[in-house]
């Protein structure tokens, strides 16, 4: 049994033991502690209640609390497992774990599927795909004709919907990603590989030994 001195720190309401989070995610204990420092910073940026609200998430991502974006909204919602409109520390670490370079590819594929399944039906539907393409065009200055958008959506759908039932199910998605691995490229954040080195200012002195 380990004996260590814990710094007296006020933990946030959703705080969870780093050793438990490290055991459940690709992070080491030190990395979870570094993430806690990051979490505290983000979660106190607007409302200092130790929880990340959607505005704080947007502010951290875009340096602008009012900048909304369909995909960042979706990511926030997926991080918010409990669906209580805030991200707690455990949710933050477990969700970011999916983006770790060492996380299983299957977790990344599943996360991306949930991200694109806008209406949580268990399928990616053609209308959802179209909606996402239009949202991207709206946020960028890219101008594509409606016909062109329809053509891209049709083409993608005919490639992915191998069963031809008008929707992409998780198996079809998995297969489609295996043919197009770049689709989950943004599910990996190299920053997370060694967050303690990348962000030394977040590292607090800890005598908890990393088990790995």
């Amino acid at each position: 049994m380990g004996c260590f001195h814990s710094k007296i720190t006020k933990h946030t309401p959703g705080y969870e033991d780093p050793t438990i989070l490290a055991a459940e995610t690709p992070f080491t204990v030190s990395e979870v502690e570094a993430l806690y420092e990051l979490f505290k910073k983000i979660s106190s940026s607007i409302i200092d209640d130790g929880l990340i609200h959607k505005e704080e998430f947007q502010l951290a991502l875009f340096r602008n609390r009012n900048r909304r974006n369909l995909f960042s909204d979706r990511i926030f919602d997926l991080f918010d497992y409990k669906r209580n409109e805030v991200i707690e520390f455990g949710e933050f670490v477990r969700s970011l774990g999916v983006f770790h370079p060492n996380a299983p590819v299957s977790d990344k594929v599943a996360f991306a599927f949930r991200l694109y399944d806008l209406r949580n039906t268990g399928y990616i539907e053609r209308e959802e795909l179209r909606e996402m393409v239009l949202a991207l065009l709206h946020e960028s200055d890219l101008v594509l004709s409606e016909d062109f958008v329809e053509m891209i959506v049709d083409k993608t759908f005919s490639d992915a919907d191998t069963k031809g039932d008008g929707r992409i199910d998780p198996d079809e998605w998995k297969e489609f990603v295996s043919r197009n691995p770049s689709l989950i490229k943004n599910m990996t954040l190299p920053y997370l590989k060694d967050i303690t080195l990348a962000f030394p200012s977040f590292v607090i002195s800890s005598e908890v030994e990393d088990s790995e």
Partner: peptide, 26 residues
């Protein structure tokens, strides 16, 4: 057309979580 709609979507800034890790000095 060889464009893949999901690849296009993934260009969205909303997917770039790197902002979470950037220090702001404000």
């Amino acid at each position: 057309v060889n464009l893949n709609a999901f690849e296009i979507i993934s260009l969205s800034a909303g997917f770039d979580l790197s902002g979470l890790f950037e220090e702001s000095d404000d």
